[in-house]
Design a binder for these strands. Structure first.
Lengths: 110, 110
DNA sequence: TTTGTTTATCGTATTTATACGATAAATTTA
DNA sequence: TAAATTTATCGTATAAATACGATAAACAAA
């Protein structure tokens, strides 16, 4: 991509965009959904469930981790990834607030 | 980017990812916020408010339109962009449902 | 120690995204 | 009709994202 001029839109929108960007790929949504729905949070288990190479899954996990959506805990040779509960609720609120700004009853603008 | 294997994750996650992807850029969030907060929905007004070239803004508007987040109505030589009310509420629900799948009281998985 | 297991990272090829200037297309105005 | 206005699109340069194989790193097990 080109240089996204992220410095010009305010901190709030930049942070929100970082979250929605991390959510903007089906594989990452699938991983999150998997972590929530099942108890298999070990990296290897996730790799088995996805039609992607281990390296690719690891990259997606890294992206989710950097966005604060998940956290990883090392357990021997394996790593257990979980939803970052605190951030999850915070982000949920942020996204919900963004959508809620719009009032559907306000009528069309033009 | 590489070929995102979007064919393997189910229709729902693909559709949701398309929406969050469109929301994954601060300029586009800014545009949406602007459309909601002000009454200036004309393309030219948006260009003036953003630190981006007209062509770039037009591209972002196209992305938002293709995602179904906004709709454009031609009015003379100018175009008025508005939030797509129906889709907006639907998408809001989708995103909210996705976040709500996680129960913060369920405890850590490991 | 040696071997095996698991995950992260490196290197890299490819595709997409972002951005801009220039220009086309459509409508308004003079 | 001619000129001005507004927006979309084209062409293009650059950067980031996606994906993979190969390999390193860390730990467990033999």
């Amino acid at each position: 991509m080109g240089t996204s001029k992220t410095e010009n839109f305010g901190t709030d929108l930049n942070e929100l965009a970082a979250i929605t960007k991390a959510l903007g790929h089906p594989a990452r949504l699938f991983i999150l959904h998997h972590l929530i729905r099942t108890k298999s949070c070990v990296c290897g288990d996730i790799v088995e469930v996805l039609p992607l190479a281990q390296a690719t899954v690891s990259q997606h996990l890294k992206a989710l981790k950097e966005a604060g959506l998940i956290e990883g805990e090392i357990s021997g040779t394996s790593v257990c990834y979980c939803i970052h509960a605190e951030n999850w609720m915070k982000y949920s609120q942020w996204v919900n607030s963004f959508f809620s700004q719009f009032d559907p009853l306000s009528g069309k603008c033009c």
